[in-house]
Computed example of a mutant assay.
Amino acid sequence: MELRQRALQVLCIADPQLKALQARELQGSAASFSIASDRPAEPREPIPGRPSRPELIHPSQVARRSPFKAEGLAALLHAIAHIEFNAINLALDAVWRFDGMPDAYYLDWIRVAGEEALHFTLLREHLATLGHAYGDFAAHDNLWSMCEKTKDDVVARMALVPRTLEARGLDATPQIQDKLRRVKTPEADRAVDILDIILRDEIGHVAVGNHWYRWLCEREGLDPVAHYDVVARRYDAPKLYPPFNEAARKQAGFSEEELRALSSSPGAGAPG
């Protein structure tokens, strides 16, 4: 079988545990697959494969609970697990959907899918120690909604999913870890350790997005900074609020010009 066809098959798996397992297996065997120049035919079943739970609601309706209580810690970990589950789908979608990219692009996003699957698995297993499973809490669908919006525009996809929505995790993770350290329980400490792994890998994932966004801009004769503003308006990207994790963003390949533009954006002066 060909790599992009296999990525689509894994994307269509609804069972979260099986999807994560097969995404990690695909990461390990990716080099043995051929890579087709044309995308596979879209299947009849829904894309992406997702379980019937969690219930998906508007972000403003998602309950916020204190991690200083057991139920609140579980809810927080569930919210992060939901992001990681969606991130598996986002990476697999980037592989099967977009034609005309170098082989390295497809292999990069297969690696990202496998690492996101590891993150989801670590969180799912930790949730189980707290007496909960993925699907026990309601969640929102913002990540996949942007994926849908940009399905016909690979430049916008690279600009707005890894470099915008996923890069927000670089800013938020240290703040979450600080709060969890104040909880001072073994369960919270384990969550901090998992988030260390996630933050390390997510810097690399955002770097993949930065690399391919710039590669595409160069191919199409676009200025990366100016064109970002164009696609952010076109696809109604969320405004980004400080504080920004500039050290992590620099590691992920954001330029000084991009960081200055971020700090001077309309959202940067508003409370987060």
Rank of each mutant, 00 (worst) to 15 (best):
Q5I: 00
C12N: 09
I13T: 08
D15T: 08
L18K: 09
Q27W: 14
A30F: 06
I35G: 06
A36I: 03
S37F: 07
R39F: 05
E42I: 12
R44P: 00
P48G: 06
R50V: 02
S52M: 05
S52Y: 02
R53N: 04
L56G: 01
I57F: 01
P67H: 08
K69D: 09
G72P: 11
A75T: 03
A81P: 04
N86M: 13
I88V: 14
N89V: 01
D93C: 02
A94S: 14
F98D: 08
D99R: 13
G100K: 10
L107Q: 10
I110P: 00
R111V: 03
E116N: 03
F120W: 07
T121K: 04
E125K: 12
T129K: 14
G131A: 08
G131V: 10
A133C: 13
D136F: 12
S145P: 01
C147L: 10
K149E: 07
T150M: 03
K151L: 14
D153H: 07
V154D: 04
L160D: 06
P162A: 12
T164N: 13
L170Q: 01
L170C: 05
D171T: 10
A172Q: 13
P174F: 11
Q175P: 02
A188V: 04
R190P: 01
V192Q: 08
D193Q: 14
I194H: 08
D201Y: 04
G204C: 13
H205M: 05
G209I: 01
W215T: 14
R219K: 12
G221Q: 10
P224F: 03
V225T: 15
V230L: 13
A237K: 07
P238S: 09
L240F: 00
L240N: 02
P243A: 09
P243E: 09
E246A: 02
A247M: 05
E257A: 15
A261W: 01
L262I: 10
S263A: 15
A268F: 04
G269S: 13
P271G: 15
